[in-house]
Design a binder for these strands. Structure first.
Length: 716
DNA sequence: ATCTATTTTCTTTTT
DNA sequence: GAAAATAGAT
């Protein structure tokens, strides 16, 4: 087989993996193996694309995989099922909606919708909202679903859990009545379908002779069970994964599934991919050293036959603005050397960190593209518009109705709404039908009755009136007739303007929307709504502009960039405060660090801030332990010089820092030694001359304000 | 019922 | 520091 042209550009281990079964290593070409295996199956073994199922975790990965296969094969492979677990589950449920007891037009609930719904239920159950936060209940419900458990499977005497269970029950009832399916439910219901329906199961088992799974370390219980069911006794399953890149434990992923797979599929061969084709020796060494601090690893050491490359730069900023300025300065230098902006990425632990970075990039007029965070379809005004569209698709969608029945305000206040909810509960009906009945029965006061009936009329009007419209015109009509557009137009401020723009952009998005081959069973509206929920609009405009890439460490997995910045590498932020007490979670943070570092191909720059503002409060974090775990020989500490600097001499040198030097004789970020407090970093100053005071963050003693004249400081 | 001003809580990470 | 929850005024 090695003479086959498809295998030529793979190394010996990759080659073996293509033709055999499964497994590992960052930058070792896992996805490449998967793609080549699929092509090899088709070309060499005459396997029909019809019998192949390929599963990924993100839409991006799925799209990339399909693209690469088609490129390799030179033709489209529409018959093949490639997609995310959630996308494929959705497809299964659509095809068998009757078997799983769903209405044909069932809608998908995103986690924001889910949380609102749960919150409402907790209120209606007369539970104390302080004691039973919606977020916690949501976490509980999703956790149980990820384990494959329905309320009836939960048997507990723990009073806390009993209450949570009752919320779960009420929530599930509510979803079922309204034809709503959340993310976890997609997987759980698809699994129950395969498990309980022999005919359906055997059909798919017969069909999918070859199953391939990317990033297997991220599978949870239900996803694993899914694969097992589909695999049956005879089908070939090929998985790739890296236990060191397991970073989704918090949402139920189980690394153990890799080991379990080897036990459950006795014929499976393991092939280790340890040669790294991405990063330089320095980066790889440092990453290996960091990850070596974890216990319970399957164990591997990546190596490269490329050179050591540049050392990893470490920059200690005095605050988050300085950190952002430094990064921007480096990016400008990178661009000036003739490099593309899209080849560099700024990675951070939490989305909140992006703002300061964005401001600095904006200020420097550097175009950037931000992944994740508030996505297009998650914006308030877009969700409002989508809720109207959802009502057109399914009147029973309670979540959508709750959202827009009084948006814009049309005189249906809390009191009226409560009556509708109560009637719905008593009669076990969706809100829409309950509202209709109340209007007919004349139980509402004249004013309220009028308002509700007008709302019902509005939706019915929109539905019948736009029946023949294209999706774009339908959307346009909805935002106009509903008064949503007018409402946002009436608001003042920059924010309201962008909301109006976004609504118009939604119309454009509808116009440009094309049905996928696999979605022929759906109406354009339903397909669009599913896209909005499942794909959250990752690909926004400006895709072709050369721009700096900003994203969280989580969303960087699977990607690579010549130049990578990891920002905010501080104790309490990364590793995050919540993970520090629990060893298991700390190890997950360390894997996240490993993932981040191994994204870099040529140069890695790690930054941290001595002082950082987090929701209004100043924090003085220490350097992250992860930096301490890297071998010093691979590192290069960039520091502001403690001697006088010509203004503008260094492009990384901030104006504020120079100003501080003029006033006090010390620069921000400068390291100093105090006879009593030891070493520290200058953070801030006030006043001028000998009476001026400076703020120093001492490594041991914490942050203090000292008068320059009296503090016996010396540079160090 | 709605608008406005004031208080409170919140942040990991994503399909 | 912002979004959301709460309270007070119309």
């Amino acid at each position: 087989m090695s003479e086959h042209p498809l295998l030529e550009r793979l190394n010996e281990h990759q080659r073996a993996a293509v033709a055999a079964d499964n497994s590992a290593g960052a930058g070792s070409g896992k996805t490449r193996v998967l793609v080549h295996r699929i092509a090899w199956l088709m070309q060499q073994r005459q396997v029909s694309p019809y019998s192949i199922l390929a599963v990924t975790f993100t839409n991006k990965a799925a799209a990339e995989m399909r693209g690469r296969i088609e490129q390799l094969m030179g033709s489209s492979v529409r018959a093949m099922w490639i997609g995310t677990f959630h996308g494929l589950a959705h497809r299964l449920l659509r095809a068998h909606y009757m078997d799983v007891g769903l209405p044909q037009n069932f809608q998908i609930l995103d986690s924001d919708d889910q949380q609102r719904l749960i919150k409402r239920l907790i209120r209606s159950m007369n539970l104390d909202e302080k004691r039973w936060p919606a977020k916690q209940a949501q976490w509980y419900i999703n956790g149980k679903k990820d384990e494959g458990l329905r309320p009836l499977h939960i048997d507990t005497y723990d009073p806390t859990e009993r209450t949570l269970k009752s919320i779960y029950e009420a929530y599930q009832d509510s979803c079922d009545r309204a034809g709503l399916v959340d993310f976890a439910e997609l997987l759980l219901r698809a699994h129950e379908l395969l498990r309980d329906n022999r005919i359906v199961r055997e059909h798919y088992q017969k069909r999918f002779q070859h199953i391939l799974v990317d990033e297997f370390q991220d599978t949870n219980d239900i996803q694993y069970a899914w694969i097992r069911l589909l695999a049956g006794q005879h089908n070939q399953v090929c998985i790739v994964g890296d236990d060191d890149q397991s970073i989704y434990g918090w949402r139920g992923a189980r690394v153990e599934n890799i080991q379990k797979f080897l036990d459950d599929f006795p014929g499976a061969q393991t092939i280790r991919l340890e040669q790294n084709y991405r990063s330089t020796g320095n980066i790889l060494n440092a990453a290996n050293q960091v990850i070596a601090n974890n216990s319970d690893r399957l164990g591997k050491d990546l190596w490269t036959d490329g050179g050591d490359g540049e050392a990893i730069d470490i920059y200690a900023a005095f605050n988050e603005q300085d950190e952002a300025r430094y990064i921007v300065g480096r990016i400008e230098a990178w661009r000036d050397q003739g490099n593309a902006l899209q080849d560099c990425a700024i990675l951070y632990r939490s989305n909140a960190q992006s703002r300061v970075l964005e401001e600095a990039l904006l200020h420097a007029r550097l175009p950037y593209r931000i992944y994740g965070g508030l996505r297009f379809f998650e914006r308030q005004e877009i969700k409002d518009a989508l809720a109207y569209l959802r009502l057109l698709a399914s009147r029973d969608d309670d979540a959508a109705l709750e959202r827009v029945i009084n948006t814009p305000t049309r005189g249906i206040g809390n009191r009226t709404l409560e009556l509708i909810r109560q009637a719905a509960r008593e009669r076990q009906l969706p809100l829409w039908q309950s509202a209709q009945q109340l209007v007919n029965e004349q139980v509402l006061s004249g004013r309220a009755r009028n308002a509700v009936s007008q709302f019902i009329e509005l939706i019915e009007q929109l539905a019948s009136h736009t029946l023949e419209f294209s999706l774009g015109r339908q959307c346009d009509e909805v935002i106009k007739q509903s008064g949503l557009l007018a409402m946002y137009e009436a608001e003042k401020g920059e924010k309201a303007e962008t909301r109006v723009d976004n609504l118009k952009e939604l119309v454009t998005a509808c116009d440009n929307f094309r049905l996928d081959d696999s979605e022929e069973d759906l109406s354009p509206l339903n397909a669009f709504l599913a896209h909005a929920a499942l794909e959250a609009g990752d690909e926004q405009a400006d895709e072709y502009q050369d721009a700096v890439q900003l994203m969280t460490l989580h969303s960087a997995k699977g990607l690579e960039f010549p130049l990578v910045f990891m920002a905010g590498v501080e104790e309490g932020l990364f590793p995050s405060q919540q993970s520090m007490d629990e060893p298991g979670r700390l190890e997950e943070e360390r894997r996240l660090c490993y993932v981040g570092m191994t994204r870099a191909m040529q140069q890695l720059v790690i930054t941290y801030a001595e002082q950082r503002r987090i929701y209004g409060q100043d924090f003085f974090h220490k350097v992250s332990r992860f930096i301490g775990e890297m071998p010093p020989a691979c590192l290069n500490e960039v520091r502001i010089q403690s001697k006088v600097q010509q203004p503008g001499m260094s492009r990384f040198h901030s104006g504020a820092s120079h100003e501080a030097f003029v006033q006090t004789g010390y620069q921000l970020g400068q390291r100093v030694r105090h006879p009593k407090f030891g070493e520290g970093t200058v953070l801030n100053y006030e006043g001028s001359g000998p009476q001026s005071r400076i703020q120093i963050n001492f490594d041991m003693a914490g942050s203090k304000w000292l008068v320059v004249a009296y503090a016996r400081l010396e540079p160090c």
